[in-house]
């Protein structure tokens, strides 16, 4: 694979990664959001695969296959279980409305460019030029955690956050070592397990998953 076509494919893929991240901020259907998370993870997998093929690194390819299995299949499937199969599958109560969310997401991307400018300037390679994309995905995930109320979306945002960290790692280096990556994966998996267990438990008790309405549980 030539440098030119690798960079071009890499850009496209990380662009798709960002697109799916942003689309989660737009979608209201919870199942739609899960599907987008899946697509997002697949883009991440392709990112790893591309880097692996380009660097002829078998470990990296292996790692990306792990990503595919856990992040594109495992985590979204678990999160989907936190969504009530009957009843409210829409995320209609938001702190920030959709149009504003979309514009804020754009502003976050611009902000990520400013934020990473010194880093990119340090080592102006073509691959690192896409670092802002990874960072903006990270910030968007934080934004979603802050402004969304449904537990499922928060879980999705959390998984997104993890994906974004891995994307940054792929951009910055040839990828995180397999051990570190698998450790992080297990953490996230565990956390999501706990949250899903909690969520389904709470749902069976309160019939509702809106954080605002859960305040009474706290009291």
């Amino acid at each position: 694979m030539s440098v030119g076509s690798f960079t071009s494919l890499f850009y496209f893929d990380i662009g798709a990664f960002l697109f799916f991240t942003m689309a989660i901020a737009w979608r209201k259907s919870l199942f739609g959001q899960v599907r987008l998370l899946r697509a997002n993870a697949i883009a991440l997998f392709l990112l790893g695969l591309l880097s692996g093929i380009y660097a002829k690194d078998a470990a990296l390819i292996g790692l990306s296959i792990v990503i595919l299995l856990v992040r594109a299949y495992g985590i979204p499937t678990i999160i989907a279980r936190a969504i009530p199969h009957s009843g409210d599958q829409w995320e209609s109560t938001r702190v920030v409305n959709t149009t504003a969310s979309i514009l804020i997401v754009a502003a976050i991307t611009a902000f990520a460019y400013i934020l990473t400018e010194p880093l990119v300037a340090l080592n102006p390679t073509k691959r690192i030029a896409s670092l802002p994309v990874g960072v903006s995905a990270l910030l968007i995930a934080v934004f979603l955690i802050v402004t969304r109320r449904r537990i499922a979306t928060q879980l999705i945002a959390f998984a997104l956050f993890d994906n974004a960290i891995s994307a940054c790692a792929f951009v910055l280096t040839e990828g995180v070592p397999l051990v570190v990556e698998s450790g992080a994966l297990l953490d996230v998996l565990l956390l999501i397990f706990v949250l899903v267990a909690l969520a389904s438990n709470m749902r069976s008790q309160t019939q509702s998953m809106d954080i605002a309405e859960l305040r009474e549980l706290h009291e």
Partner: peptide, 22 residues
């Protein structure tokens, strides 16, 4: 707004991504 964001990202990407010459 979505289409605006696409345009916005296209502009930012044109400025920040290095030009690829195959």
């Amino acid at each position: 707004a979505g289409s605006f964001v696409f345009g916005f990202l296209a502009v930012t990407a044109s400025y920040f991504l290095p030009v690829i010459k195959a």
